[in-house]
Write a protein that binds this DNA or RNA. Structure first.
Lengths: 344, 344
DNA sequence: CTGAAAGCGCTTACAG
DNA sequence: CTGAAAGCGCTTACAG
């Protein structure tokens, strides 16, 4: 039943075992493994040696019971198979690892109920914070967690919840410049490819882009699909290119759909990009840089997001710095005409 | 310093708080939240109500101290930005979530020293098991963990370590059929695109493919790069197509490199696939199914891998079922000629 | 600097 | 079915 024990009592060595062997108290053992605690070099050495011999490893679970700082961080994700989610998680877990934080990841599906349950589950781990990367936990549930003392950090989901930390993007600036790109590129018939069920961040992109475009006297053709996948992007392009108002510029709400749009425009309709059609994406996933796509897009500030999450975990940080806005920079590649680039 | 406490003592409610309010013992509270424990409907109801009012949530960390089953699972990953790794992690965390396991993920970089440190760190969490998805922790380190009673499960890294559970792929069958594909497709000059630093699974693919090809009287041209990225795939194709022995068939050790090969062959050399060149990959990442690639490949048994990992976590499972071999099935798409498909 | 003691929040034999 | 008690493995005031 127990897996190959090493210690005589059938379990891994505990601080008592080490104390006994080193001929000191458990406190001394604890202090030896606590940064900045006061132990004499001598006892320290004895403890270290005994620990080595017994293959002792501090039990973090037990430590977490008394110490606040070593509490884990919970990360709520979904759709890890999608590049944006995977890249964000990659940056985040790397940063947390460096900051000596332990990351518990909870893969909530697309079901909003699952997100809610996961958030509640988070309470069971007495997490230092819960980071919501995806899924849309109901506002009510988020508020409840916050009331119970749980710190919640929402990444890229610009909800209007009080007392919650948001890390978001300055969509206003980004969308303003997106519109200008299309204008400079000489596009007149512009389509927007989005999703029917909109998360706050998708909604922001859609709304602001539309508003700024209208301010320039252009009414966008809006296409909305069931999901934000590659296949949905293909479907969008098929329907748009067969329609009466064939667009000469398409803004896709995310890169994944943009990739589908590109392949369909080229392979099924024989269009040349950017000559016949300009395409703009959002996220800067790895595939946007592949030769087959060479997609002009806006880069998510992956590294900065991770940095801010880690920073906001430090105990000195107040709960009140509740909104951090980062900027998404345009990445110039080949799906927009050269004229789209602003003159310096 | 403390984050918005709810309980009067400044912390989240504990089982004592609930017991007091419900007028029962702590044992009764514990039993109420333990599946299959014996509590009368009446006390159960009282406890549940008090818990509700106090927003009580069992502290899993504390529970883990006494209960074996609720120990977490550690997952060692790296390169989460690469599709294969992300997809595997997606399947795994979903399965673990369903099995009520908590997943701690440790993002080890590419550094082998980091993998070693991470594996050691794993001991601190008294994990039920450590699952190694990537990185190559030194054999010595793995053995040491096993000796300390840590269960280690290696996924797709066919090392020769005793006492360690392996989940691997029947590369022999897969590579045998890969060779036959190229032969049926009528390819004569076959290249193998691999990486200089070979993990056990890459090595197996490379060795077996080469051996079976030689058995057919064909000597493959072997190209090895620094990494297994898209960009390395591009580089491989450039060098191979400029060389004296231009191949008519290329087997890429993974899909990511295959995508790079395809784009370069088409866009830089104007080749038609599969007419001028056949390409075969391995992994079946999402991009292999994109219209721009339509890559014939072998599918990793993602779902089965996740299933077996979860199954081997059950306490009844002995430590000795140390090698599980799954099969990777060919996925027929457009980068191999139609003749490559075996006749039924 | 050091150790005895109390505490963190749970679970689980053991009696009743 | 139930509760008092001991235990899980740590940390941290408190005296010395």
């Amino acid at each position: 039943m127990k897996a190959k024990p090493i210690a005589s009592n059938g379990h891994a060595a505990s601080s008592s075992d080490v104390a006994r062997r080193a001929g000191v108290s458990r406190s001394a053992v604890s202090r030896t493994f606590t940064d900045g605690a006061s132990v004499s070099a001598e006892t320290r050495a004895k403890v270290l040696q005994a620990a080595e011999e017994l293959h002792y490893h501090v039990n973090f679970l037990a430590r977490g019971l008394s110490k606040q700082e070593s509490r884990p961080v919970c990360i709520l994700v979904s759709n890890l198979h999608k590049p944006y989610h995977a890249q964000l998680l990659d940056h985040l877990t790397t940063a947390l690892q460096i900051a000596q934080r332990i990351s518990i990841i909870i893969n909530v599906g697309d079901d909003p109920a699952a997100a809610s349950a996961a958030l509640e589950q988070t309470l069971n781990y007495r997490a230092a914070a819960t980071i919501v990367l995806s899924g849309a936990p109901p506002a009510l549930m988020v508020r409840r967690c916050v009331e119970l003392g749980q710190r919640v950090i929402l990444v890229n989901r610009a909800d209007d919840l009080a007392d919650v930390q948001h890390i978001s993007i300055d969509y206003e600036t980004a969308m303003r410049s997106a519109v200008q790109m299309f204008l400079r590129a000489g596009c007149h018939k512009i389509a927007l490819v989005s999703r029917a069920v909109r998360t706050p961040s998708l909604l922001a992109r859609e709304d602001l882009f539309t508003r700024f475009l209208r301010a320039e006297g252009i009414e966008p053709q809006i296409w909305r699909g069931q999901s934000t996948t590659y296949q949905t992007g293909q479907q969008a392009m098929r329907e748009l290119l067969v329609g009466l108002e064939r667009p000469d510029g398409v803004f896709c709400i995310n890169d994944l759909m943009a990739c589908g749009c590109i392949d369909t425009a080229r392979l099924e309709f024989g269009l040349r990009l950017p000559e016949d059609l300009c395409i703009l994406g959002f996220d800067d996933i790895a595939q946007a840089d592949w030769a087959g796509y060479d997609l002009t897009t806006f880069a998510q500030p992956y590294t900065e997001i991770a940095q801010f999450v880690v920073a906001s975990l430090s105990p000195s940080e107040t709960m009140t710095a509740d909104r951090i806005i980062l900027t998404a920079r345009p990445i110039w590649r080949g799906t927009m005409r050269a004229s789209a680039v602003p003159k310096p």
